[in-house]
């Protein structure tokens, strides 16, 4: 655990010293601040628009942070060979990967908390009152990001940084179209196409399971079972993908 913690803290420190992080954070705050303008367009539904836009903005910018930072921070370590000095010390390869993962989670978590507090503040400022359920919605976005970062770590050890970013982005997009994929399997004429789409459906997590934005924005009830199921689902996928990443990295030559 010691090595994982040390590497995680260093990864977090590296992210904090990267300007890209602040750029994304700045854009996210700007979007939330400007949501009032969109709110004006919808009479009587201002707070809903602010919440909707704010949550979508948090999800989008956290996704960008997760994809960019994950691929940068893991691939850069391998490409710039700084990993040589880590792995020649009493550090296991899986400890290195889990340390990087934990550091990235910390980066996303800090940004998530910051963005959520700012959103709650803007909702209150624009007259929407204090809505604690916003924390639930953003918390589930955090779970989604934990799964996505696991994929980014996997792609970082499998391929080059650019391809890694593209693949992680593809997982995010396909993961949100999961329901559509399922419907597609029923309507595709050929069996080959159906098989391919089915494989994709089962390989990529259904990110819509973590989406509670509509329920929070429109004050709809959220069954506890749905939250529990989403948490178990997220843990399962994260664990599985991280194990795959560790297994692959264990046998990789660092040239």
């Amino acid at each position: 655990m010691r090595a994982i913690r040390i590497i995680a803290v260093n990864t977090f420190r590296e992210a904090l010293r990267d300007r890209v992080l602040y750029l994304f954070l700045g854009f996210a705050i700007l979007l939330m601040a400007s949501s009032k303008i969109f709110g004006i367009l919808t009479v009587g539904e201002q707070d809903k628009i602010i919440k909707d836009l704010g949550l979508a903005g948090i999800q989008f910018f956290l996704m960008l942070i997760a994809v960019m930072m994950s691929v940068i921070l893991v691939s850069r370590e391998i490409d710039s060979k700084t990993v040589y000095y880590l792995l020649a010390k009493p550090v296991r390869r899986w400890q290195f990967l889990l340390g990087k993962y934990a550091g990235l989670i910390l980066v996303v978590l800090v940004n998530l908390v910051l963005m959520t507090v700012i959103l709650v503040f803007f909702v209150w400022l624009y007259g929407g009152g204090f809505d604690p359920r916003l924390f639930l919605a953003t918390g589930m976005i955090g779970v989604e990001m934990a799964v996505l970062i696991a994929f980014a770590v996997l792609f970082s050890v499998l391929t080059k940084p650019i391809l890694g970013s593209v693949f992680t982005l593809a997982v995010f997009v396909v993961g949100h179209l999961s329901q559509d994929l399922w419907l597609l399997t029923r309507h595709l004429p050929g069996s080959l196409g159906r098989t391919l789409v089915s494989v994709l459906y089962y390989l990529v997590p259904n990110f819509e399971r973590f989406n509670f934005k509509t329920e929070v924005v429109h004050q709809l009830p959220i069954p506890a079972a749905a939250i529990g199921l989403a948490l178990v689902y997220g843990c399962f996928f994260t664990g599985l993908v991280l194990v795959l990443a560790c297994v692959r990295f264990e046998r990789r030559d660092l040239q």
């Binding site: 010691r2 590296e14 060979k81 010390k89």
Partner: peptide, 27 residues
């Protein structure tokens, strides 16, 4: 083992002292 690679692959965003502290913790 103490190992030094052919080129000095170090975290350039850290100071020399920070890097040695980080290494000491890992050691």
């Amino acid at each position: 083992i103490g190992f030094m690679a052919e080129s000095p692959y170090l975290y350039t965003y850290l100071t020399g002292r920070e890097y040695l502290r980080f290494s000491a913790e890992l050691l």
